[in-house]
Amino acid sequence: MDFFLQQCINGLTLGGFYALIALGYTMVFGVIQLINFAHGEFFAAGGYMGVILLSFCASMGFLETHPLLCLGGSMLLAMGYCAMLAMAVEKIAYMPLRRASRLSMLLSALGMSIFLQNGLMLTQGVYSKSYPTVFTNKVLHLGNVSISYMQIMTLALTAGLLVGLNALVFRTRIGTAMRATAQDKVMSALVGINANRVISMTFAIGAGLAAAAGIMVGMYYGTVRYDMGFVPGIKAFAAAVLGGIGNITGAMLGGLIIGLVEIFAAAYISGEYKDVFAFIILIAMLYFRPTGIMGENVDDTRV
């Protein structure tokens, strides 16, 4: 039982990361119907910005005196950085192709993904980078189940970001504009919504969430690598589709499911086949519900 609970916690943490990355996929897909292969690279860039800024703080000595300020500041800056990066990528590589076939955009995204990954490798070096220890790795023991403070913080931050995103999409003007653009581009343009701006914002928000995930992954697992975006990118893409692509609640659910399946497959069946089980679950689920768990574009929740 303890074993099971512990694995649940492991799965939820991993699933939370996938959910954060999947949100960016799903939002971008909702607005311009593009599978943004470069999204995993935004996640990696976020992780790197986090390590750069936190190491800088640590060398200045701020990290020990104001850990929360440093962490919060780094996270905001990294999110801003990735938002800028995503907007630049969108303007250069996707905007000119908006009228072309969707597959042309997909190819452009793949090119950008290779470019950014190698850009990270060249500027940051081939060796992995290590996060400075922000908080001591204290562990909370509940019986035989142990939760680290890092895990609690990660879960809390993930939940907070998800709630914040929901509020942004459903309560604010820009959120409404995003939903309108996702539903009908022509109609929303007619009522005076600037599609270019909305698309830029969508990329920025999605990349910001990916950056937050990148920092948390970096802190939780301890290191970042230039190619760390690729595998989680694919998993998050699977999560987004599993939940019903374009559907925000679906993406969160999908992320959690993929995370849990992966952990339980590794725990109870076999580590080497865990990805096989994740994909089998995905395929089985899609066979019975071809538009994902929550369904695609069911109401106005699509972004």
Binding site: Q7, Y221, M228
Partner: peptide, 20 residues
Amino acid sequence: HDHVNEGDMDFSAVLTKIKQ
């Protein structure tokens, strides 16, 4: 004798097994 996949970043499942 367990396995992980190359490129993995999360080893928590197997670590829980080791601990047990």
